[in-house]
Simulated assay, not measured.
Amino acid sequence: MLNRSRVPSGLRSVQLVPEQEDAATLQLGEDFSSEKAQPLTISEVAILLSRKRDMMRDLEGPRAEEFSSVFKKFLEYVERFDRYKGLESATNVRNLLQRYESLDPFEMACLANLCPADAEEAKTTIPSLKHKIDDSSLNQLLQDLASFTH
């Protein structure tokens, strides 16, 4: 129980209501609203980080090799899990996903990053898909995504 006598008077009227986040219902919080951020695929992140690394090398020469350990580890991670190698494949994946207008950008990124084997697995791992897309269409989308993997 909250002891009001110890709470500063200016805060007594403030109600502390935790923001309810739930990916299953696409309640992702204010930081992930479509106006503030767009989810990226791992391949898109790999492309961005590679470009950043190349820019740093061009600008700083040999000193650019001194990337932070966090940057290096993150780049290694995304390169390791990059299923759609190269800008062309990543662009094709994004274009394919955007054809499915009922999908939320978060769902698109999840499908591209997780690469579920079939509609059942997709709807189990991404529960918000259950009532958005029929199994036949989802299976076709997953087959099309798989055609871009390397």
Rank of each mutant, 00 (worst) to 15 (best):
M1Y: 09
N3S: 07
R4C: 00
R4F: 08
R6C: 08
P8I: 08
P8K: 08
S9K: 15
G10D: 13
L11E: 10
L11G: 01
R12M: 03
R12A: 00
R12E: 08
S13M: 09
V14C: 04
V14H: 11
Q15A: 08
E21W: 07
D22Y: 06
A23G: 07
A24L: 01
T25F: 08
T25Q: 14
T25H: 12
L26N: 12
L26I: 06
L26R: 11
Q27D: 08
G29F: 12
G29H: 09
G29C: 07
D31A: 13
D31G: 11
F32R: 04
S33T: 14
S34H: 04
P39R: 07
T41E: 03
I42E: 00
I42P: 00
S43G: 14
E44I: 01
E44F: 01
A46C: 09
A46I: 05
A46W: 00
L49F: 06
S50I: 09
S50C: 06
S50T: 15
R51C: 01
R51S: 13
K52L: 15
R53D: 07
R53L: 09
D54V: 08
M56Y: 05
M56V: 15
R57V: 15
R57W: 04
D58H: 07
E60K: 11
E60V: 11
G61V: 05
P62E: 14
A64T: 08
F67A: 14
F67N: 05
S69N: 14
S69G: 09
V70P: 00
F74A: 01
Y77W: 10
Y77R: 09
V78Q: 03
V78S: 00
E79K: 10
F81D: 13
D82Y: 00
D82G: 02
Y84A: 03
K85S: 03
G86I: 07
G86L: 05
E88D: 12
S89A: 15
T91R: 12
R94Y: 09
N95K: 15
L96Y: 05
L96S: 04
L96W: 02
L96T: 04
E101V: 12
S102W: 01
L103T: 01
L103N: 02
D104C: 06
P105A: 04
E107K: 03
A109S: 14
C110E: 11
L111A: 03
A112Q: 04
N113K: 08
N113W: 05
N113P: 07
L114K: 11
L114S: 03
C115E: 13
C115F: 09
P116M: 06
A117I: 11
A119P: 07
E121L: 02
E121K: 13
A122I: 13
K123L: 02
T125E: 09
P127G: 02
P127Y: 06
L129M: 06
K130N: 10
H131C: 03
D135P: 01
D135Y: 02
S136A: 13
L138R: 00
L138V: 10
L138W: 03
N139T: 07
N139F: 12
N139Q: 07
N139C: 11
N139A: 11
N139S: 07
Q140N: 11
Q140P: 00
L142C: 04
Q143S: 14
Q143V: 04
D144T: 13
D144H: 10
L145C: 06
S147C: 05
S147Y: 08
F148K: 02
F148D: 03
H150D: 12
H150A: 12
